[in-house]
Design a protein around this nucleic acid. Structure first.
Lengths: 152, 152
DNA sequence: TGTCATTAGTTACAAATGAAACCAATTGCA
DNA sequence: TGCAATTGGTTTCATTTGTAACTAATGACA
């Protein structure tokens, strides 16, 4: 009988079986693939993509709202917006009742890009889900559970 | 009957329901929490942590092997190792048969840290899994499936 | 009203990251 | 052998990111 000291590290930890590591690798792969796709095809970064998605889904919004809905901090949001405005994909119109806020809306070019990227995103997602096979059904509930325990 | 043009974007895309986004947010949260933990307690970054885990699990290894086993590119590995060596947590001994390679091993300090961080990592993982409840059982198979389709 | 605290958004600075160039050692092969 | 191609690992440079400080505008409340 081997006594177990309270600091006994136990068996060595297998990185390949460690949940946070696996999650990170998988997420990194998927995001990376999508990032390359949008980068080469639309000169669009992931943060910029998220901003477009939020504007497309929720209409004219402020930077703060974008941040809340996209889980990005305000600096990242600010920079993504700045670039989208510079590329003439978004317009900023000051809120008359609070001149700190600016409402974001698509330009024609922005709307056009949005119309292109949404189906593309769906297609990528659909392909992954199809490849997943039977596990596909569990994925949503598993992610929901993770979001719950990690406090979205 | 509305005809559907081939470019019809369909309903606006909900970021909160978009798989790559959800995966990224969840992974980011978990990794972030762990990163802060290791940073404040051991002055250890995630890449450094991964290197220690690999050395602890696979014994003396080279930088290239670390890269393969931890899914990190060689630059990140090189820098993590450099810092671990500078902090006297790892030793590098040149391979006599190939003087480009250096075998990495723990110093006493490195081994001590490794003994501390592994149980801590397990504890974090265990807490998440416990919080997951019934979904816990699906998580592993779901991740395995994702790894398969995304090509680990 | 006047002032202090808060909020929206930007900027400045430092750290992390990756692509590409790089050096040194080894291998393949004429 | 000798030389080109490859491999292990590091460095350089540009880009991305986050923290903290900042400006401007609004709100709270004496």
């Amino acid at each position: 009988m081997k006594p177990i000291a309270s600091t006994d590290p136990g068996p060595p930890l297998d990185l390949e079986r460690f949940l946070p590591y696996r999650l990170s690798v998988v997420s990194e792969r998927l995001s990376g693939a999508i990032a390359r796709l949008y980068q080469t095809r639309f000169d669009l970064s992931i943060p910029e993509w998220r901003v477009l998605a939020i504007v497309g889904r929720h209409g004219p919004v402020t930077a703060t709202e974008v941040g809340q809905k996209s889980q990005m901090d305000k600096v990242r949001v600010s920079r993504a917006i700045a670039r989208l405005v510079a590329m003439d994909r978004l317009t900023q119109t000051p809120d008359p009742t609070d001149r700190r806020r600016k409402h974001l809306a698509f330009t024609a070019a922005g709307a056009a890009i949005h119309r292109e990227i949404v189906p593309l995103a769906r297609a990528v997602e659909a392909r992954v889900l199809a490849d997943l096979g039977v596990e596909e059904s569990h994925l949503d509930t598993t992610l929901t559970a993770l979001e719950r325990t990690l406090g979205t």
